[in-house]
């Protein structure tokens, strides 16, 4: 199975645990926010005590880091609050030093946390994918209408990472004070969020305050939405985000999935018929002459692992 529906999880009152996995230095602590129990992929909130130090090295998973509080030095770069790193698997990240303590979200995307000391990149590393940027300082807020239908005005976004194959996104977003959106939404993708500051409200789950987190699998209703005093959050999707809006408070994920498929049937009928027709089905994804090896991409492989084989692919 993939990660379960964790919503909401307010982690602030939970204790950190010592990180004792091989390869992880002392003085680092973690809380699991969500975990794929098969692959080990996970989202952690981590605390690095003053004096934490780690030598240069790599992981066998793509890793994302978002600094919540304090400062960490990565190689020669000072990463303060709001700093975001996308570290491709096999990328030899510079030595990490934390002089005064630091908290961060740390996400291992493909497998359980791993660390191998190294000052050179793995031969297969897609090192061009490395991203290092300060989300607070290095990009302007944009209106969140990069997808249509779009959220109501007052929800703003900064995209930090975009996967060209899956269109997965990592981003920060904010809701202005008195933000309101009166509809119910679901998506084809998993959606994840951590509230850095502020409280938002959803009709299904109530308030999500500072320190609130969710991992929401596809096709699960959420909304209507409110934020009285505003909020700022870090978010991710694992593939393309499309907003399916509606106003039925009692639809379930199966009905939502069928409604999404019906939309494909209406809007891309040829493609729907081809995918659905007997003998032309490709549960692992059909060939793509532009991206010949896309099946081998770890992000794409993850989709197949997550797929529930509860139905026949051939009709």
């Amino acid at each position: 199975m993939a990660r379960p529906h964790i919503e909401p999880f307010v982690e602030l009152n939970d204790d950190y645990k010592n990180f004792s996995l091989p390869g992880f230095a002392a003085h680092s602590h973690y809380k699991v926010l969500s975990l794929d129990v098969d692959t080990g992929a996970c989202t952690l909130k981590m605390r690095f005590d003053a004096g934490y130090s780690r030598k240069p090295g790599m992981s066998y998973a793509d890793v994302e880091i978002f600094v919540l509080t304090g400062t960490m030095k990565v190689g020669e770069q000072i990463c303060g609050e709001g700093h975001y790193l996308f570290v491709p698997a096999g990328y030899a990240l510079g030595a990490i030093d934390v002089p005064e303590g630091c908290e961060a979200l740390v996400m291992y995307n493909d497998s359980e946390p791993s660390f191998v000391e190294s000052d050179t990149h793995h031969a297969l590393c897609l090192k061009e994918g490395f991203v290092s940027t300060n989300a607070y300082e290095d990009a302007p807020w944009a209106v969140a209408n990069l997808v249509t239908p779009s959220v109501a005005s007052g929800c703003m976004i900064k995209v930090l990472h975009y996967d060209v194959l899956s269109e997965a996104l990592s981003f920060i977003y904010c809701m202005t004070p008195q933000f309101a959106q009166d509809n119910i939404s679901y998506h084809d993708c998993c959606e994840e969020s951590y509230h850095i500051w502020g409280t938002s409200w959803m009709m299904q789950f109530g308030d999500l305050p500072t320190g609130g987190y969710f991992w929401r699998p596809p096709y699960i209703d959420h909304g209507a939405f409110r934020s009285k005093f505003g909020t700022i959050a870090f978010g991710r999707t694992d593939s393309k985000l499309h907003n399916y809006f509606h106003f039925n408070p009692w639809s379930n994920p199966d009905e939502n999935r069928l409604r999404a498929a019906a939309q494909v049937y209406r809007q891309r009928p040829e493609l729907y018929q081809w995918i659905a027709s007997d003998g032309h089905n490709h549960p692992h994804g059909p060939p793509d002459f532009e991206h010949k090896h896309y099946h081998d991409n770890p992000q794409i492989q993850g989709f197949h692992a997550q797929h529930h084989h509860g139905h026949d692919h051939d009709h």
Partner: peptide, 11 residues
């Protein structure tokens, strides 16, 4: 194509 992830040692 092969990826770094494919070379991960056994858990």
């Amino acid at each position: 194509s092969k990826n770094v992830q494919d070379e991960k040692p056994a858990r």
